[in-house]
Write a protein that binds this DNA or RNA. Structure first.
Lengths: 155, 155
DNA sequence: GTTGAAAGCGTGAAATA
DNA sequence: TATTTCACGCTTTCAAC
């Protein structure tokens, strides 16, 4: 499925997604074109889903992060309400979850007032029955790399 | 703080963090060296905090995502317990939050059994008084770009 | 901000194992 | 199949403006 070479490449890309193929090639002792081909295959297979820049939300005027539990009165098994929530640009994540709530939603907004306006828009979405908002006071860890098994050194 | 040109660059990088300086330069009608310099300044100012690859957790054997609310009996104002939680590699996010719980934690693990073992390690961290785990059934939206104000066209 | 030039990189084709 | 080598064009980067 994924071999040690792939893991090694992914490990490097998790540290810096803008690393050049040539520098990756140097680090793993391969030709750049081989690295290119492996990355392309990982993209095609959907293991790599894209490349993102990590921005400082606060410095961009988005000082407030919140998690919102959303209740919904939709047909069992439907996720239509969640997909409607996901359309809003302030919404960074929507997860359909087990338990009494239906959705857990992560949002970034400039301030309390914007959060209030956003919750009103949540309320206008069909099926939404309640929201419970939890404010983030301090983000302690964010967007950590996934714990890939370490590549085994070839013996 | 951030002008329209910066916003334009960030907008492009949010879509594809591996976009070359030259292609960004073409899209915004500037010299590549000017783009390079702006990106460097955004990095130095901490607006850009890094470049990440978005991986498919399921295809890497991490089939289970969960959010865990963690209660802690530490001194008011301390976040030591949160920083200890953040050390674990399975933990992708730790937020110190308002409300009855102290922390909200996001984790990726291979399966139920690994989740159980992880929760045991949570319990071994000093101060942790309880955990409430919510399993993700379907991730509907993840790692969406931040809603930057659209750049105003120069008039 | 721009340009220009040198060094480095991306990428496909062909060769190799 | 997966990889290296090679060659071309493009990109990065810095210095000078």
């Amino acid at each position: 499925m994924i071999d040690d070479t792939d893991r090694h490449i992914l490990h490097i890309l998790q540290e810096n997604a803008r690393a050049s193929n040539a520098s990756i090639a140097r680090q793993i002792g391969m030709a750049p074109s081989a690295v290119l081909e492996r990355i392309r295959k990982l993209e095609k297979r959907g293991v790599i889903q894209g490349y993102e820049v990590k921005l400082n939300a606060k410095k961009l005027g988005l000082a407030l992060t919140a998690f919102i539990r959303v209740g919904s009165e939709e047909r069992v098994g439907s996720t239509q309400t969640g997909r409607n929530l996901a359309q809003l640009p302030e919404v960074q994540e929507v997860h359909h979850v087990a338990g009494p709530d239906c959705y857990l939603v992560k949002v970034h907004v400039p301030d309390n007032e914007s959060l209030g306006q956003l919750l009103q828009r949540f309320g206008a979405i069909e099926g939404v029955s309640y929201t419970h908002t939890v404010l983030v006071l301090t983000p302690i860890k964010e967007s950590a790399p996934l714990p890939l098994p370490e590549p085994h050194p070839a013996s």
